[in-house]
Amino acid sequence: MKDPFLTIVVPVYQVEKYLERCVDSILNQNYQDYEIILVDDGSTDRSPEICDEYAEKFEQIQVVHKKNGGMSEARNTGTTLAKGKYVYFIDSDDWLDSSCFEQVIPLVEDGNYDLVCFGRQFVKSEDEALRQVAEPEIRSVTGYDAYLEMMDQGWVTGFVTDKIYKVSLFRENNIEFPIGRYYEDLGVLYRILLNSNQVLLTNQVFYHYFLDNPNSITASWNQKKVQDMLEFYKDAHHSEIVLDNLQESDQHIADVYYVNGLIHVLSSIYKSGYEKEYEYIVEDILNEIKKHPLTYKDMAKQPNKMKYLLYRLSLLKFAFKIQNILRASR
């Protein structure tokens, strides 16, 4: 039996409510040259049993049961076992449009790209339809230009799950998801992009990113989450591989992305009311922002532009304090 073209890795942890929706969205694809690796990361609900039931019904599905080690370790396990030339990671509370692989895989096969990036949409229920692109477009860019596209909030997002990767990108460049860290997507994407030769981009939207999972890591904050996110933003801006590749003419784009990330982390601290507990982190963030002075116009494309304006007006902390008071009074 020949190896599949695509390996789909599904980390599974405490998702008995959502797992079937996710796996069914893969099985319902018209494209079928794939294997599915369900990595049960020590779930204590019915997720392990659901995984085994799928494996008994479908020969292209295999299950790995392991002790809990986190999302990164689960993804790394799947990548190690992958038989496909390409690998795709999907979060088990999310799901795909039924036409995703049928539309995307032929593009990858024709061009032998290192990775392909497509669109995702945040949704709160299965009733929300994906937005339709009036004029679908496809672009071929270098890995470096794809990195800049991510920095500039273009067609390349900071998420792992709206991309399909050549497995050799991970194996030949010793890239692994960082074990024991939150926001692992931030920790690998810039490395993947800067190690890529050719990247295919499409503005078509195929991925449903589910927002209403109460167990999501973004549902609450703690010191480690804050520190991990901050360190990954720093790495994406001035780690060794970035400094070796970033052209001087593109430094401003990287600075803007970095400041947007810093504002996001700072806002998350203020929103959670942890500014006193994390005082030294707040001080570090504020010092980093001051090192990269920007105008509001510079931040026009960034999702945190209004928060940056509040920061410049010295109102960001106050705004979240008022928001927290109003929330508590409800």
Rank of each mutant, 00 (worst) to 15 (best):
Val64His: 08
Pro214His: 09
Val10Tyr: 11
Leu27Ala: 03
Glu102Trp: 12
Ser25Cys: 09
Leu315Gly: 02
Asn304Val: 00
Glu240Gly: 08
Thr80Phe: 12
Asp152Lys: 04
Ser25Ala: 11
Gln62Trp: 10
Ile179Ser: 06
Leu262Lys: 00
Ile192Ala: 07
Ala134Gly: 10
Glu73Arg: 11
Tyr296Asn: 10
Gln153Thr: 07
Ser314Cys: 07
Leu200Asp: 05
Arg330Glu: 09
Pro293Val: 01
Arg21Lys: 12
Trp95Gln: 05
Glu49Lys: 11
Asp228Gln: 10
Gly111His: 13
Val116Leu: 15
Lys124Gly: 13
Asp255Lys: 11
Tyr258Thr: 10
Ile322Phe: 13
Thr295Met: 06
Gln323Cys: 08
Thr218Arg: 08
Tyr296Leu: 11
Arg171Met: 11
Asp152Tyr: 08
Glu184Met: 13
Thr161Asp: 15
Met150Asn: 05
Gln323Asn: 15
Ala82Asn: 02
Gly273Met: 08
Asn287Gly: 14
Leu27Pro: 02
Gly261Phe: 04
Lys225Asp: 05
Ser196Asn: 03
Gln204Trp: 07
Ile61Trp: 07
Cys117Gly: 05
Asp45Gly: 05
Leu6Phe: 10
Glu248Pro: 01
His65Cys: 09
Gln103Val: 03
Lys224Trp: 14
Cys117Ala: 15
Glu20Ile: 11
Lys290Trp: 06
Ile138Phe: 15
